[in-house]
Amino acid sequence: MDYTWQYYDLVLLGVFLSMASGAVVGALTAIATTTAVTAAGLLAVVIIGHGLFVNGPVDSREDLAEPVEALN
């Protein structure tokens, strides 16, 4: 079975790598771990924001205007 990488796979990988790199930087350098992980967390927030708002999980902009029947 061939697996093809999707955009949201890369978003999840980017979040993981940013947080892991923050932990590694904090552990191996003079930068405080809390500072390094916080900075990496901000990068993760940017990646998540891009996945949600710039390249959101909808097919088209018209999908955003459709009413949700479960809430009516």
Score class of each variant (00 low, 15 high):
E69T: 14
E69V: 12
S60T: 09
T34R: 13
A32L: 08
T33S: 10
A36F: 03
M19L: 15
D59T: 09
G51D: 03
A36Q: 00
G26T: 02
V45C: 05
V15M: 10
A20H: 01
L42T: 15
F16G: 14
Y7T: 08
L17D: 02
A30S: 10
A44H: 02
A36N: 00
A20M: 09
I47Y: 05
L28N: 11
Q6I: 10
D63R: 03
S21T: 13
Y3C: 04
T38M: 01
S21E: 05
L12R: 14
L43P: 00
L64A: 06
E66N: 02
G41M: 03
S21R: 02
A70C: 04
D9Y: 02
F53Y: 13
V37C: 07
E66M: 04
G26V: 00
W5M: 13
N72T: 07
R61N: 12
F16S: 15
R61G: 13
D2C: 08
S21N: 05
A65K: 14
L42Y: 11
Y7E: 04
L71K: 07
V37Q: 08
A44D: 01
N55L: 10
G22P: 04
I48R: 06
G41D: 07
A32R: 14
P67R: 14
L52D: 00
Y7Q: 08
L43E: 03
A70T: 12
F16Y: 15
T33M: 09
A20Q: 06
Y7H: 01
L17K: 10
L13V: 09
A65D: 12
T35I: 11
D59V: 07
V68T: 14
V24E: 03
S60L: 00
L52P: 04
V68H: 11
L12K: 12
